[in-house]
Computed example of a mutant assay.
Amino acid sequence: MNYHDLSVSFEIEHVLTRMGEQTESGKGYYWEYDLGRNALVLPDNGRLFFDCASDRLAGPDKAVPIKASVSLREAPTNVDPRALREANLTILHSAARAMAKELGCKNDGNLPERLVIKEKAAPTR
């Protein structure tokens, strides 16, 4: 499997907004996974939301929402969509854990050391 034009990005969000998570979660478009606060994944993109309490952000007692995103310009069509979703989730988990460690997030942003893929909901659309 070749991934071309794969990108990973992070957004540190305002404490009250938690952009994207509330507007997209539960609307039946993404597969939802039990990881961080929530993970929303498709074969060509995904988002992982987690909280980070750190001296480098708002302080050790104030969690700041972070969104990690992964996107592929074009997902391969000859690969099982579930395998692509799980690959995106693996990338998100690894990148988010690395960012949580770099920022010094308390409890590594509550992201487990080892990824356990656990679906919460399938798309309804």
Rank of each mutant, 00 (worst) to 15 (best):
L84I: 00
A96C: 08
R85H: 02
G59M: 03
L72I: 06
P112F: 09
R85Q: 11
K62N: 08
L103Q: 07
A87I: 06
A58D: 13
L89K: 08
L84N: 02
K101Q: 13
G59K: 01
K62P: 02
P112I: 05
G104Q: 08
V116N: 14
A58N: 14
S71V: 13
A100M: 00
V64P: 00
V116K: 15
S69H: 02
P112R: 03
L115M: 01
R97E: 10
S71N: 13
E86G: 06
A68R: 05
A58T: 08
S94M: 03
K67C: 15
V79P: 01
A83R: 08
A63E: 14
I91K: 10
L92T: 09
L89W: 00
R85T: 05
A68K: 07
L92C: 07
A75D: 01
S94G: 14
C105M: 00
L92Y: 13
C105F: 09
N107F: 09
K67H: 02
H93L: 07
A87Q: 12
D61Q: 14
G59Q: 11
T77P: 04
N110K: 12
K67L: 13
D108Y: 06
I117F: 04
P76Q: 01
N88S: 07
C105K: 04
P81D: 13
A98D: 12
A87D: 11
S69R: 11
H93F: 06
P60K: 15
A98E: 13
K101H: 05
G109C: 05
D108W: 02
S94Y: 06
L92N: 00
L92M: 08
A75R: 09
D61S: 15
P112Q: 10
R85K: 14
N88Q: 14
L92V: 03
E86A: 01
P76Y: 00
R97T: 12
T77N: 12
G59S: 12
L92Q: 07
A63I: 11
N107C: 00
P76A: 11
A68T: 15
K106R: 15
D80T: 06
R82K: 15
G109D: 00
T90Y: 07
R97N: 06
M99F: 13
K106S: 10
A96N: 01
I91G: 06
D61V: 05
A75Y: 00
P81N: 11
S94A: 15
T77A: 13
E113A: 15
L72K: 01
P65N: 02
P112H: 04
K101R: 15
A75Q: 02
R73V: 10
A95M: 05
P81E: 14
E102S: 14
L72E: 08
L103Y: 06
S69M: 13
N78M: 09
E102N: 04
